[in-house]
Design a protein around this nucleic acid. Structure first.
Lengths: 365, 365
DNA sequence: TACACCCGCGTTAGCGCAAACATCAGGCCA
DNA sequence: TGGCCTGATGTTTGCGCTAACGCGGGTGTA
């Protein structure tokens, strides 16, 4: 407001360039000596800015001695490249976006973790955009937010039908991959073979003598859920067994518990396959409360093999999903896509049946 | 300066500006009409680029009619602002970094989710940098990676002593907040009051008549773990009870199981407080295997209140942590810090004891 | 009518970096 | 000796955007 006491502000603000780090002419309150930029490093090292840039991007093109001087100058000034400027000129941000539903769930969280680890190894960062509802609209929003941050590509983890629709709005050459979605999409897919896993666990139960296997499914609009239903059904039909109606769940232990109360009341039920471990946990509790012993009277199996599964009561037979691998695959596919690869390959990994104590031979009548 | 050697290579490459979207003069292979930039929008709307910028950043300074034309032009060209250019000139990226240990664990994952939701509401994005080991070095690396991406600020979730050290390298004015760390740091902290939670659950067990309470702790170098130990100890000492040595765990169900086998062998043990729910689950299994009934013979309580806790066998008494709220607080603190707030406030939220069936009165001898 | 003022918009000047070209020295071969 | 390549470095330019200021015309006040 008042007249600035400084007589001639001079060109302290500098015409840019070579002012160097020495900002203070004894100014009364100029505490922060603004971060060093490439030009500062160049000046200190006695080279041009372009050489500094080369040291960063293609060191082999700079004579070792010069390179050494530049690196020393960088260290001295604590220089850190400005990524925004780099992105502006190269068009590449080295940042990937991940769209996911609830990153609190074990599956998505593990996949995200796998992606992040793979990305870290390749000098990329990961930005997240979670969606609170699985609608085409919210997925599109999330994709949009990531795009506006100029990510180089996007991984969509929500293994949900809406994910597909949400991606249709993307320009066809925008790099995107999906984790776990169906194959009706023009983008690469990294997925666990849910169908094979479900078949495997169902066959395991049948091999123990059970006449058929009941199924507590995930939400039908989740692709994982419907594929697990398909695998379970296929295994039953291959053996000519009765296929009970699958009971709908929502992945939560609570829904497993609620369906479990119904199943517990039916003496026909001797084997149940839950589409994930929390629902299996709910099932176990419902059966226990109803006085039906597991595995003596009823066998229960889950899917995911969460780290806690061995400590359930009883320890849970489950299907282990190699989430880390899926994340790695997703990352690889995305990088190939960014590098210009065409087509929509599908990379599948096999889950593994882990037999524990919650499944046993069919009780004699 | 020098005469450009090129005769006139035409202006196919464009002198920038007003070429508009119509890139093709019938070129043989020009499929993609490069994304629209501000100038294109300006031309189409018949205004200057600056006005377009204003429509984006301070719409109230543009006459509604003009604004309408500009918005229409944006829509027509599917214009999306280039964030890199904006960041370059403003110095603000609207991106926050989150450093976390294992985003697969329920606590960190939930906190991250809370932060992300809060950030989304404020038009910010979140980038993650997970660390695979909790050393000063790896934390510094993670912070460095985020900084090089020009995030506006950083939230460190690893509630670990090393997090503190990892932050000391930061320039003092770089916005950072910590979730859950001790108060010996010059940065704001958002935290659950672990000590109060542990006291509460311990008092609950004492009030049921137990002479004392055993404790399976988390890794001692985790701040959460040591605060829970402190709360448990304080509650026992306040009542003049014997304070058994805490048993070290590593948060995993397995470690809970292993300590549980030791505890189960000691008939003195009638009440155990585990520092998190997975360890409590392991405990439950160990006690069950040893034939000690819960809660009739031994009471067990956990911490976290994971969604599955009500379905354990038996349903677990636990301490619910309001992770979402912590995430929100962390975000708020960070935004205040970015806005220039000084000091290192500490915002604490109270956890809540949830009593279920795993705790009961001390058995009569 | 005169002057100050504000509103709405345009102009100019970079932000920090790398692509594309320019330059320059030295070595090689004829 | 000259021409030409090769390797190391410098110069110019512009990526897309916004801060800062400039400018014209309308409104308010005297």
């Amino acid at each position: 407001m008042t007249a600035p006491p400084a007589p001639p502000p001079a060109d302290a603000a500098g015409t840019g360039g070579s002012t160097g780090g020495s900002a203070g002419m004894g100014g009364p309150s100029a505490p922060r000596p603004r971060a060093a930029v490439m030009e500062d490093v160049a000046t200190l090292a006695g080279v041009s800015a372009m050489t500094v840039s080369r040291v960063l991007n293609s060191p082999e093109k700079v004579r070792p001695e010069t390179r050494g001087r530049v690196l020393a100058a960088m260290r001295e000034l604590d220089y850190r490249p400005n990524s925004a400027a780099r992105v502006l000129v190269t068009g590449r941000s080295q940042v990937l976006g991940v769209v996911s539903f609830d990153t609190t769930l074990y599956g998505p969280a593990s996949t995200l973790y796998g992606i992040e680890r793979a990305a870290r190894g390749a000098e990329h960062m990961v930005s997240i955009a979670s969606v609170s509802s699985l609608t085409r609209r919210s997925i599109q929003d999330a994709v949009e937010r990531l795009r506006s941050q100029s990510v180089d590509g996007i991984v969509v983890i929500s293994p949900h039908r809406s994910a597909a629709d949400g991606l249709r709005g993307l320009p066809p050459d925008f790099p995107a991959v999906v984790v776990g979605a169906g194959d009706d999409l023009p983008v690469p897919v990294a997925a666990v073979d849910h169908r094979a896993g479900a078949e495997r666990v169902t066959r395991h139960l049948l091999s123990l003598g059970h006449r058929t296997v009941w199924h507590v499914a995930g939400p039908i609009d989740w692709i994982d859920a419907s594929e697990r239903v398909a695998g379970w059904r296929a295994a039953l039909e291959a053996e000519g067994r009765r296929v009970p109606d699958p009971l709908p769940g929502d992945w939560s232990a609570r829904s497993g518990y609620e369906q479990g109360r119904l199943l517990a009341a039916d003496p026909e039920v001797t084997a149940v396959f839950a589409a994930n471990d929390p629902m299996a946990l709910g099932l176990l509790r419902a059966l226990r409360e109803a006085g039906r012993r597991v595995p003596e009277e009823v066998s229960v199996a889950g899917f995911d093999d969460v780290p806690e599964a061995p400590y359930f009561a009883p320890p849970l037979t489950s299907v282990r999903q190699p989430f880390g691998e899926v994340g790695r695959y997703a990352f690889q596919l995305l990088m190939e896509r960014i590098a210009g690869a065409e087509g929509a390959p599908r990379r599948t990994v096999e889950p593994e049946l882990v037999v524990r104590e919650s499944t046993a031979v069919m009780p004699a009548r």
